[in-house]
């Protein structure tokens, strides 16, 4: 199979899916930063921004590494741990945001 080009362009489509995912993560990062700039959440707000930036960078690195491996004509399946890391990068900003909203008080 290796070397034979897939007419369904599966590797390319998967690469684009990774790119769209990093784009979605960027929106989450921007909203977290906006919250800090507009509402000024203090130290807690900066902590949430730090978590969001770390998660965003984590996702970018994970996507970049996967994109490189998807360059060949017949790539292997993703490793479970790699995808678990991506999950963590989605859960971290959710947890940081929820913590920020719940701890800021009325």
């Amino acid at each position: 199979m290796s070397g034979v080009r897939d007419p369904g362009a599966q590797p390319e489509r998967t690469r684009l899916a990774w790119r769209r995912t990093t784009l979605a993560a960027t929106v989450v990062l921007l909203l977290t930063v906006r919250h800090q700039l507009v509402a000024s959440g203090g130290v807690l707000g900066w902590a949430a921004v730090a978590v969001a930036v770390a998660a965003w960078l984590g996702l970018l690195v994970a996507a970049h590494r996967r994109l490189r491996r998807l360059l060949c004509a017949a790539p292997v399946a993703a490793r479970p741990r790699h995808l678990a890391l991506v999950c963590g990068c989605a859960i971290a900003p959710a947890a940081a945001g929820a913590g920020l909203l719940l701890l800021r008080g009325g």
Binding site: V76, L83, A94, A98
Partner: peptide, 25 residues
């Protein structure tokens, strides 16, 4: 490998759904 990649894209679509919910919140 094409089945695995399709499964991976489905996973990514769900991650985007998760990120959209986070952004929505």
């Amino acid at each position: 490998f094409r089945f695995s990649l399709a499964n991976e894209r489905t996973f990514l679509a769900w991650i985007r759904t998760a990120l959209a919910l986070v952004a929505g919140g």
